[in-house]
Write a protein that binds this DNA or RNA. Sequence first.
DNA 1: GTGAATGCAAAACCTTTGCAACTGG
DNA 2: CCAGTTGCAAAGGTTTTGCATTCAC
Lengths: 150, 150
Amino acid sequence: MVSKLQQSIVVESTSENGALGGLRMTKQRKLVYDVLMDERDHPTATEVYIRSKERMSSISLATVYNCLETLSAAGLVKQVNVGRDASRYCPNLAPHAHFICGKCEEVYDIGLKNDAEMESVWALPEGTRIDHLEVAMKGLCAKCNAKQKA
Amino acid sequence: MVSKLQQSIVVESTSENGALGGLRMTKQRKLVYDVLMDERDHPTATEVYIRSKERMSSISLATVYNCLETLSAAGLVKQVNVGRDASRYCPNLAPHAHFICGKCEEVYDIGLKNDAEMESVWALPEGTRIDHLEVAMKGLCAKCNAKQKA
DNA sequence: GTGAATGCAAAACCTTTGCAACTGG
DNA sequence: CCAGTTGCAAAGGTTTTGCATTCAC
């Protein structure tokens, strides 16, 4: 069976982004990627490290950081920053925002409304080039908000 | 002459947020706030510390952090986070995004298009309560982009 | 007067780095 | 084979904390 990571590389390397051609497939890199794909939540580097360590006890935290950086640069993973907290990592490549609940700490992916565009509400100066756009929201998720009111 | 900070407190304390009534006006707090209002750029805590030290050599970095935190909590100042870089601080209270140029490192405030709303493009689950929404963009500013092309 | 804020130094925290050993293509 | 990657430990930068002293109200 072809691993998800190999699939992704094939998919990606046929797109305009050729940066993945040079990605060397080490055990650690594949493991870190698989850890992210398996749960599809938003773990921090340390959490990825803990989960990885269960499957490969020799892996080091520095390597996890390394792999996450490489995967981000290759566009296979997104780095998520909400405030000053430790970065989280997310394998959802579709354009989306992140919402973190201030009570249960859960991170949610928030999609765009139909045909909406992320940058459409902003009055950007003519000639500006946007490479990254990150949207982070904080508040109470529907569940915690309902409990709060009750 | 009434200081800008005192003015702001008066303005703010008449709004629904009564949190400012209890703000004790220390020399350091006022200084940190004035430093932010004077330049209206987006300094980091360390930069605020350096500028503050010029006017009050005894002020400590911990106190600057303290004041920035207090002023943020009181809603007089916004904390700006772009990626993993050190937080920056901004006295612009209008809803806006931040754009940082990857080349010149300048931070720009980006306003909303006429009548646009920040959260209008996002498909938020029913019942979610948003307390903070932060939009951070990175790329090339018009100036650096033009130079790049040339 | 008194609770809150300051200043200092030390700690905490997340992340990066230097370098010798190893490994995937 | 060998450039690129790993693992380890140590360093880096930002932010927070503990505590005695000082200050604003």
